[in-house]
């Protein structure tokens, strides 16, 4: 048990109207159940709502909830209302594979600051997505997409963005400061 170290289990990107924009699971399904994590992400929204009036300065919401012994959710809310949620699995990967030298630090636990680089990288990726002229943010919001009568998913389909989220999710380990 102690020979495993924390890893990201899920990254969720949630839009302004609490609409799911993108969800990545690590390792991908069927190793992890998409429905389980969809529930987790939904439950995290309440924490955002409850804390938002009190958090006036920072975008980092830190630890949202510890789900069980293994999973914990961390959140970030941008000024434009986009939410990033990272679910960390404390025993996500065998120690010593990705985190050489920091192996065995699992018992110490995580600090909020450990997740900051993840959120910063995610936000950079999201800004990069918005800089793509072919990405129409309003097509991905349920409010305006329903008016136009578009049917189907409002999820992000940009391959570059999805690949970047995947890279971030896979390369993070406790102590990594630059993603």
């Amino acid at each position: 048990m102690s020979s495993r170290s924390p890893a990201i289990a899920c990254i969720g990107i949630i839009g302004k109207h609490n609409n799911p924009l993108h969800t990545s699971l690590f390792p991908p399904p069927p190793a992890r159940d998409p429905l389980d994590f969809s529930f987790l992400l939904s439950s995290s929204l309440d924490v955002f709502d409850a804390r938002a009036p009190l958090k006036t300065a920072d975008q980092d919401f830190g630890l949202l909830t510890a789900v069980d012994d293994r999973l914990a959710m961390y959140g970030w809310l941008t000024n434009t209302g986009v939410k990033f949620v990272v679910v960390v699995d404390m025993e996500g990967r065998p120690a010593g594979i990705a985190s050489s030298g920091i192996g065995g630090s699992a018992a110490v636990g995580l600090r909020d600051a450990d997740l900051k680089p993840v959120f910063r990288a995610l936000q950079t990726a999201y800004i990069g997505l918005l800089r793509n002229p072919f990405y129409e943010p309003d097509d991905h919001s349920p409010v305006s997409a329903n008016v136009v009568g578009r049917v189907g998913s409002t999820q992000i389909t940009s391959k570059k963005f999805i690949a970047e989220v995947k890279r971030i999710g896979e390369s993070w380990a406790p102590g990594v400061t630059n993603l």
Partner: peptide, 18 residues
């Protein structure tokens, strides 16, 4: 569309707007 992008990009390091 430009406004949406600019706001996203340049509000990242600002304190939250209440």
């Amino acid at each position: 569309r430009v406004g949406l992008g600019i706001a996203e990009r340049f509000s990242r390091d600002k304190p939250r707007f209440t």
